[in-house]
Nucleic acid binder design. Structure first.
Length: 586
DNA sequence: GCCGTTTTCGGCCCGACTGTTTTCAGTCG
């Protein structure tokens, strides 16, 4: 049973947690495991394969001889001696206590030593019996906060889709900007980096009167709990369960504060080390050489002062962007305005809400020059999928509309279902009449990895498939991605000239940023597609573009940045290749 | 435990806030 990158990451994270709980005195040893885990999770290559091929793991970053040996041990046995030993030493149940606010390794250890608490249940019981506040380092307030956190944990998930975050964010920014003492309120944090889900909102307010802003902030109607409140910083929880961290800074420090508050933590650490190496100090107030402040008003000034180009927020994950910023090799990221069209949309012929015409006009209103109509195929009964006759009629209808409409072209397409064995849900002679075929999985998500991979590889080999739709089938916060060997799929897509979709529905964002980066490196074009089921949902493209930017994609890496004339050969390339090879009749 | 414009040994990001304390450790971002 080959392990996945997530398994190696989990093992190292667990080692780090257990080392902390065990009272490891060298914090840098713990940090080494966490850093290696983070690098592995953003790798975009299959670690088990790298290990099997005896490749140099040093390239992952943060992995030396010792950690490399542990990875090989884990690959071979599923675990390693150190992990086993630590699990034996540290009571099970202590690691999950680390996830509670206010409980770190020190207090978790203390709880176990004094009250023999070794699970959340035991902790809850002790807290509600009032036994906690007698423990050194604990008091009544911490006791009740822990109790609340355990109960809240049971009812709420703690990450949010970007769209849900935005619904909370916009009115709150409005409220903050309406405070007279506010110069400007802006969003930072993982939302600004457009991570696919966010755990909280980080908001930065510039003002020369922090106290006044703080007083007004905590009066915001939607606040359920105030977790912390200081002179320049506060944390609250909104009614929907979303945490908001607010920071007030002087206007002339906005740049440094934005860098600091946008993160990621890993990126911040990386750039602070660079500052330090040059004899400077970087914090949320500015860049300092000795006592002298040399930068901080703008983000550009902060990066420039330590010899870096400004890094777009989406790239700030310490995945190579710092080195790229140092050497002038940052990619020019794709922008929403670069998209010339959209290659995945539905109408009311299947499960969409709007008509062909409305979808066409909606796309045109957004400045798009083409829109592929890709309704579902017959197999997806629940979506009223099209059979051969209905699809043939839709093709004629699109021809009529195209003759009538200007400044927008509809492409004739389908989102054809991938059957369990990798065959498609519509006959080849019909698919051959279409401009574009998006093939997607909507069933049998649970196949074993080898079988699922073979299923998808078969699809990529199909002569009429232009794009693999939402390749992993994941639904954020709901459904895990299918078990797939993405490295092989990307390699095959490259070989066959097939494109991969970055589905822009905020609950999909599929492929993710790491896989899109791997696709780019393999030379596979990515289709940023709305998968809109209504005219309004064409706006999904914004979310997809953000993930593409996180992946470091440029305009040239994205299929649908091309004008329509350049699109045809890319959609039909493999048919041409196969015709050249004589495998298909002209 | 990693790693090197400085270093093969000695560094390893930096500051705010809380709670429990009477000066600071632990936690968090």
């Amino acid at each position: 049973m080959p392990l996945h990158n997530a398994d190696f990451v989990a093992a190292f994270e667990e080692i780090a947690d257990l080392l902390e709980l065990q009272g490891e005195t060298n914090p840098f040893r713990i940090r080494a495991y966490r850093r290696a885990a983070r690098n592995m999770s953003g790798l975009g290559r299959d670690l088990a394969t790298m290990i099997a091929r005896n490749e140099d793991l040093h390239a992952v970053g943060g992995i030396g001889a010792d950690l490399a040996a542990k990875l090989r041990e884990i690959a071979a046995t599923g675990t390693c001696a150190l992990l086993d030993e630590l699990r034996h030493k540290v009571p099970a149940g202590l690691p999950e206590m680390l996830t509670l606010p206010g409980v770190g390794p020190g207090r978790a250890r203390m709880l176990h030593e004094t009250l023999h608490i070794d699970s959340l249940d035991a902790l809850r019981e002790a807290a509600s019996a009032g036994k906690l506040h007698a423990v050194p380092g604990f008091g009544e307030r911490l006791e009740s906060r822990i109790l609340e956190a355990i109960d809240a944990r049971r009812s709420k998930s703690h990450r949010f889709l970007l769209t849900d975050a935005r619904q909370n964010l916009e009115p709150l920014l409005g409220w903050l900007n309406a405070i007279p003492e506010t110069v400007e309120a802006v969003c930072a944090g993982s939302y600004r980096r457009r991570r696919e889900t966010v755990g909280d909102l980080d908001i930065l307010v510039t003002s020369s009167n922090a106290a006044a802003v703080m007083r007004r902030f905590v009066l915001y109607d939607d606040i359920e709990t105030v977790l912390a409140r200081g002179t320049t910083r506060a944390s609250v929880v909104l009614r929907g369960g979303l945490q908001v961290d607010l920071r007030v800074v002087a206007p002339e420090r906005l740049g440094a504060a934005l860098v600091y508050f946008t993160g990621s933590r890993a990126h911040n650490i990386a750039i602070r080390r660079i500052a330090q190496a040059q004899g400077m100090k970087l914090n949320e107030y500015g860049v300092y050489r000795g006592e002298r402040r040399v930068a901080g008003a703008t983000e550009e000034s902060v990066y420039r002062s330590i010899g870096l180009a400004w890094v777009p927020p989406e790239l700030r994950e310490d995945r190579g962007e710092v080195e790229a910023a140092r050497t002038g090799r940052l990619p020019e990221l794709v922008k929403l305005g670069d998209l010339r069209g959209d290659l995945h949309a539905h109408t009311n012929a299947s499960d969409g809400r709007d008509s062909l015409r409305d979808m066409a006009l909606g796309a045109r209103a957004r400045g798009l020059r083409y829109l592929a109509i890709t309704d579902h195929s017959r197999r997806l009964g629940i979506a009223h999928g099209l059979d051969a006759q209905r699809l043939a009629r839709q093709i004629d209808e699109i021809d009529r509309l195209n003759a009538e409409l200007d400044r927008i072209v509809l492409l004739k397409g389908v989102e054809v279902d991938i059957l369990e064995d990798g065959r498609l849900d519509l006959p080849d002679d019909l698919l051959s009449r279409l401009d574009i075929v998006v093939a997607s999985v909507h069933s049998h998500f649970g196949l074993a990895r080898a079988k699922q991979t073979a299923r998808i590889l078969r699809v990529l080999d199909h002569p009429y498939v232009s794009i693999l739709g939402h390749p992993t089938g994941r639904l954020l916060l709901e459904r895990e991605p299918m078990a797939l060997d993405l490295e092989r799929i990307i390699a095959r897509a490259a070989e066959r000239g097939c494109c991969l979709e970055l589905n822009s529905q905020p609950q999909r964002l599929d492929l993710d940023d790491v896989a899109c980066r791997a696709a780019k490196q393999a030379g596979v074009l990515v289709s940023i597609a709305s998968d809109a089921h209504s005219r309004g949902a064409l706006g999904n493209l914004e979310w997809g573009v953000a993930q593409a930017r996180r992946a470091g994609l440029s305009k040239v890496d994205v299929l649908n940045t091309r004008p329509i004339a350049q699109l045809w050969p890319l959609l039909r390339k493999r048919i041409a290749d196969d015709q050249d090879a004589g495998t298909i009749d002209s």
